[in-house]
C-alpha cells in the first residue's frame, strides 16, 4: 500500500541515484570492514604497511581474486563451481606439458601453453554449465563430479609428477611489477574490471542477474536461460585457465595436486563480498573486497604471530559473520528498504 503512493507517476526525474546509493551502501559495509582490519593490523604489526608487505598481499590474493571473479559469475546466475581448484591443476599441467615440448621455440611454446590453459579451463566450464542446465542437475553436484574428473585427468597427464623448469621469458611475469605493483595483480584487476563491465553493462550481464533472481520469469519472457548458464560457467572456466597461468609464472612449477581447496577460498571471497549464494545479488566490487579481506587476514595474523590453528578459526568466523550479515541484507531487501 505504501509503495503505490510512494510518489507521483513518473516523469519528473529519472532518479538513478536511488539504486546506485543503495548498491554503494551494500559495498560500503564490506569496505569499512576491510578498512577496520587494515587499521588494526597497521597498529599491531608494524611491518604490515611496508611497501614490500603490501606488494606481498597483492601477489598473494591475485590467484584467489581471479578465481573469485569467475566464481562470481557462477554464483550470480544461481550456481556454484566446486571444480575450480582441480580444473586449475588440469589447466596448469596441460599448459606445462606444452611449455616443455622441445620441438617448439620459446615464444611459440608460451603462446600455445597460454592457449592450452585457457582452452582447457573454458572447456571444463562449458561442460559444467551444459550438464547442469541441460539435465537440470544442481551445479553443486556436477562440479563436484568435475572436480574429480579434472583432478584425475591432471594426475593421468603427468603420472603424478611435478612439471618444472619453464622458459625464463614465461616465468619472468610472475615477479615483474610496474610502479611497485605486481604485474599479475594488475592483470587480475583488469580482468575484474572487464567482468564488472560485462555484468553491469551488457545483455549477458543483465541475463545473469535476471536468471539468478528468477529463471522462470526469464524463460517465460522468451529467453533461453540455458545459453546464458553455459556461458556463465565458461567465463568461470576462463578465469580458472588464467589463474593456472598466474600460478605457473609465480611458482615456476605445475603439479597435478595444486589448487586443492582453492574453490573454497574463492567461494568465501565471493560470499564475504556480499554476493548471495542463492544468486542474483552481488557484485564484483564486493568480490574484490572479499578477496582482499581474506588476504589481509591471512597476512596480518601471521605478522601478529597468531598460530596456524587459531588463524584457521578466525578465518572461519569471518566467513560465518559475512553470511550472517548477508542474511540481514537479504531481509532488508525483502522488506523493500531502500
Amino acid at each position: 500500500m505504501s509503495a503505490s503512493n510512494a510518489s507521483s507517476p513518473i516523469g519528473t526525474s529519472p532518479s538513478r541515484g536511488g539504486g546506485l546509493a543503495r548498491r554503494a551502501l551494500r559495498e560500503a559495509g564490506i569496505g569499512l570492514a576491510l578498512l577496520a582490519m587494515v587499521v588494526f593490523f597497521a597498529a599491531v604489526a608494524p611491518d604490515f604497511t611496508t611497501h614490500e608487505n603490501v606488494a606481498n598481499i597483492l601477489t598473494q590474493i591475485t590467484i584467489n581474486l581471479i578465481l573469485a571473479t569467475g566464481m562470481t559469475f557462477a554464483i550470480l546466475i544461481g550456481g556454484i563451481d566446486l571444480s575450480v581448484g582441480a580444473v586449475m591443476a588440469l589447466c596448469a599441467v596441460v599448459a606445462g606439458t606444452v611449455l616443455k615440448l622441445d620441438s617448439l621455440s620459446d615464444p611459440v611454446a608460451i603462446a600455445l601453453g597460454i592457449a592450452a590453459s585457457l582452452a582447457v579451463g573454458m572447456a571444463c566450464g562449458a561442460c559444467n554449465g551444459f550438464v547442469s542446465s541441460f539435465w537440470r542437475v544442481p551445479s553443486f553436484i556436477v562440479t563436484l563430479g568435475m572436480l574429480n574428473v579434472a583432478r584425475g585427468a591432471a594426475l593421468e597427464v603427468t603420472n603424478a609428477r611435478t612439471i618444472y623448469d619453464f622458459p625464463d621469458s614465461f616465468t619472468a611475469f610472475g615477479t615483474a611489477s610496474v610502479l611497485g605493483v605486481p604485474v599479475m595483480f594488475v592483470l587480475a584487476l583488469l580482468l575484474l574490471g572487464a567482468g564488472w563491465v560485462v555484468l553491469t553493462r551488457t545483455v549477458f550481464g543483465r541475463m545473469i542477474y535476471a536468471i539468478g533472481n528468477n529463471e522462470e520469469a526469464v524463460r517465460l519472457s522468451g529467453h533461453r536461460p540455458f545459453v546464458f548458464k553455459v556461458l556463465a560457467f565458461t567465463v568461470t572456466g576462463l578465469c580458472v585457465g588464467i589463474a593456472a597461468l598466474v600460478y605457473m609464472t609465480r611458482l615456476t612449477i605445475a603439479n597435478p595436486i595444486l589448487g586443492i581447496g582453492f574453490e573454497l577460498n574463492a567461494i568465501a571471497a565471493v560470499i564475504i563480498g556480499g554476493t548471495s549464494l542463492s544468486g542474483g545479488r552481488g557484485s564484483l566490487v564486493g568480490t574484490l573486497l572479499g578477496a582482499a579481506i581474506i588476504g589481509v587476514l591471512a597476512n596480518g595474523l601471521i605478522l601478529m604471530g597468531v598460530t596456524d590453528f587459531v588463524r584457521q578459526i578466525i578465518t572461519g568466523l569471518v566467513i560465518i559473520g559475512a553470511v550472517i550479515l548477508d542474511s540481514y541484507r537479504a531481509r532488508l531487501a525483502a522488506r523493500g528498504g531502500a
Partner: peptide, 23 residues
C-alpha cells in the same frame, strides 16, 4: 521505461525502483 510508465499510468518513483516495492 518512463514512456511505458506514463502510457500505462504506472505509479513508480523512477525507473530504478525495484518492482518488489510496487503494489
Amino acid at each position: 521505461t518512463v514512456r511505458m510508465t506514463a502510457e500505462l499510468a504506472i505509479r513508480l518513483s523512477g525507473p530504478e525502483q525495484p518492482v518488489v516495492q510496487l503494489s
